[in-house]
């Protein structure tokens, strides 16, 4: 079943009367359980696409259906709810809260959910365990290495058991060894059934994915499925 169905998506930024076309007619379908890498030079629109698919941003024209429901049918509150429950985000810069422990960072999405507080501990523990950081759960984020920080970010994305995880160059700030370790975790999540969409410009990172989409100038250039 299709999780994501986009048809002719366009995104135009209007800035001081000069319109910049970031997405120029993207049509794309992603099934549940897929592992998709989006590649392309900077300015090709891959981040914009990820933000729109992840409901952080709105497209200018075209149609976008998430989970069988058109984006236009979601209210602002409902979009927040989808971001909270069905989508997990991982960013290049980790974006952990300062002076906050691993546990509190991972629990962050739960604050905005309707999950009862009694279940928080279990959910957070499970997510932290999935990224192999159980021993550091009470450490503050500043005490962690880059690779560990990104694993905390993955645990945070995972805590509400979402359908899909969007990762925007998750290994961009990591050395190649921690990058590989992180990709192992992401691959494992995919094997456990999570849909993964990640942006990268490194071939060996993209190699973990089963499907690679190449973008250029706001358009899909190639869409390859590996055997």
């Amino acid at each position: 079943m299709k999780l994501i169905e986009a048809k002719d998506l366009k995104k135009i930024y209007g800035n001081d009367g000069v319109d910049t076309v970031a997405l120029d007619g993207i049509s794309l379908e992603i099934d549940r359980g897929e592992f998709v890498a989006i590649m392309g030079p900077s300015g090709s629109g891959k981040s914009t696409l990820l933000h729109i698919l992840g409901m952080l941003d709105k497209h200018t024209s075209g149609t976008y259906q998430f989970n069988g429901k058109s984006m236009d049918q979601y209210s602002e509150e409902e979009i927040a709810k989808v971001r909270n429950k069905e989508i997990g985000f991982v960013f290049q810069a980790f974006n952990l809260l300062p002076r906050t422990t691993v546990l509190e960072n991972v629990e962050l999405p739960l604050i905005y959910s309707d999950v009862p507080e009694e279940e928080w501990q279990d959910k957070a523990n499970a997510a932290v365990e999935a990224v192999g950081l159980s021993s550091r759960i009470h450490h503050e984020s500043a005490q962690l290495s880059g690779g560990e920080k990104q694993r905390v970010a993955i645990a945070r994305a995972l805590v509400n058991d979402p359908e899909i995880i969007f990762a925007d160059e998750p290994t961009g700030n990591l050395d190649s060894k921690s990058g590989r370790a992180l990709m192992e975790i992401i691959s494992k999540l995919n094997q456990m059934g999570k849909t993964i969409v990640l942006i990268t410009h490194e071939e060996d990172i993209a190699a973990y994915a089963k499907r690679v989409i190449h973008m250029r100038d706001g358009k899909i250039e190639k869409d390859l499925i590996r055997k």
Partner: peptide, 16 residues
């Protein structure tokens, strides 16, 4: 600002 962006990304509404 980034914290606000993050909170929204993980499900905070504008009201929150």
């Amino acid at each position: 600002t980034r914290e606000i962006g993050l909170r929204k990304a993980v499900g905070a509404t504008s009201k929150d």
